[in-house]
Structure formats: structure tokens, C-alpha cells
């Protein structure tokens, strides 16, 4: 029980590390996922190909392997960044593939005629997507995007294996100090719960606000 009170700052640092990883990687994943989803429905064949390749490669690579590739691979090409930034890159790119597919399935729920009407009025592809299709797609992708971001929060634990400060990694410090391993993990689990429940609450609110307004 006193694992937490004795090591509050260790836990706190780990918790903050995970929160930071989750927030930054989520923002990156949302931005990239949005871009890739636009590519995948674009009228230009090369963009569609790029989007499809992006999703295929990232979605089908084990995340740990991707971490190895980014953290050990990129420095060989002269790109040396702080490990936390590398971890955000790996997590964000990996998750963007899933966000992209969620958004694309949302785009497919919008009736074809909506896009046709916008195009027939002279709106460009970008205008049609941003003003007509995506706002309607958005409503049906709130729940799946929420799930994807929750998965991201938990996946961030892998970064700990690459000496990035995050929540799961705190167990190593604490078990070296001889604390009860069960309680160590109970508090870690609680930390993750706080993060994931916050994400679900946020998306629940968004769904209430926008999900059914039709």
C-alpha cells in the first residue's frame, strides 16, 4: 500500500510521461490520419497509392518492430532526436493508419449524392471534403477514433523498453527497491485507467454533443 505514497514522484513522472506520449502521439496520429484519409479518397491516383501504402505498411507492422526501426534505424541515417520524440513519431505514425481507416469508413457512410451535389456547385475536392463530407463523416467516427486513441495510450508502454520515461517503466525502479510487485502493478494499472477513462469520457461527451444531431 505504501508503494504509492513512498514513491509518489516516481509514479508521477511515469504518469506524466505516458500522458505526454499519449497527447503528442494522438495529435500526430489525428493529423496524419486525416491527411492519409484525404489521400485515400482523392481523385489523384498517386495520392491514393501513397495513402494505401502508408496504411498497409504501418498497420501490418508490429509496433515493437516499428519502435526498433525508428529508434535504432533512423539514427543510422543521421537523424538523431530525443528518444521521446522518436517514440511519439513511431506511436503517432502507427496509430495514424488506424485513424485513417476509421475516418475513411466514416466517409463511406456519407451518401454519394452529398459529394456530387457539392461538386456540381463547383466546389473543389478539398472544399467538398472539408465542408460537406468530413463534417458528416465525423459523427460516425467519434466512437472508433476514441477506441483507437485508448489503444494508443496503452501501446505507449512499449516506449518504456526504449528508456523513455513512462508509467509502465516505473516498475523496474520500484522492484529494484524491493517493493511488492503486485501493489506496484496495481498502481500502474490505476494510472492507465485514469488516462483511458478520461479519453473515453471525452469521446462520450463528443458523441453526446455531435453524434446524433441530424
Amino acid at each position: 500500500m505504501n508503494v504509492l505514497t513512498d514513491n509518489f514522484s516516481t509514479y508521477g513522472k511515469g504518469f506524466l510521461g505516458t500522458v505526454e506520449l499519449t497527447v503528442y502521439a494522438s495529435l500526430l496520429a489525428l493529423a496524419l490520419g486525416f491527411l492519409m484519409a484525404s489521400f485515400r479518397v482523392a481523385p489523384v491516383a498517386s495520392l491514393r497509392f501513397f495513402g494505401t501504402a502508408w496504411v498497409t505498411v504501418l498497420r501490418n507492422t508490429p509496433l515493437t518492430l516499428l519502435f526498433f526501426a525508428v529508434l535504432l534505424g533512423l539514427p543510422r541515417f543521421g537523424l538523431v532526436l530525443p528518444f521521446q520524440l522518436f517514440a511519439v513519431l513511431a506511436l503517432g505514425c502507427y496509430t495514424s493508419a488506424f485513424i485513417c481507416e476509421a475516418l475513411r469508413s466514416g466517409i463511406n457512410t456519407v451518401p454519394r449524392g452529398q459529394g456530387e451535389a457539392a461538386r456540381s456547385l463547383g466546389m473543389t475536392f478539398g472544399q467538398t471534403l472539408s465542408a460537406v463530407v468530413l463534417p458528416q463523416a465525423f459523427r460516425s467516427v467519434i466512437a472508433p477514433v476514441g477506441s483507437t486513441l485508448i489503444a494508443l495510450a496503452k501501446n505507449s508502454a512499449i516506449a518504456g523498453a526504449f528508456s523513455v520515461t513512462e508509467l509502465l517503466g516505473t516498475y523496474r525502479t520500484l522492484s529494484e527497491l524491493g517493493y511488492n510487485i503486485i501493489w506496484t502493478f496495481v498502481w500502474i494499472a490505476l494510472g492507465y485507467l485514469i488516462i483511458t477513462l478520461t479519453i473515453s469520457a471525452l469521446f462520450h461527451l463528443m458523441e453526446k454533443r455531435w453524434g446524433v444531431a441530424r
Partner: peptide
Amino acid sequence: AGLRAEVGMVFQAFNLFA
């Protein structure tokens, strides 16, 4: 797109932005 703006279209299914 510029040309389409010059030719209006009315659809069977209305297609108003929902």
C-alpha cells in the same frame, strides 16, 4: 470545378447538405 459552377444541377434525391 470552375465550369461546374456555371452549370447548376438538380438531383432526383435532392442531395441537400444534411
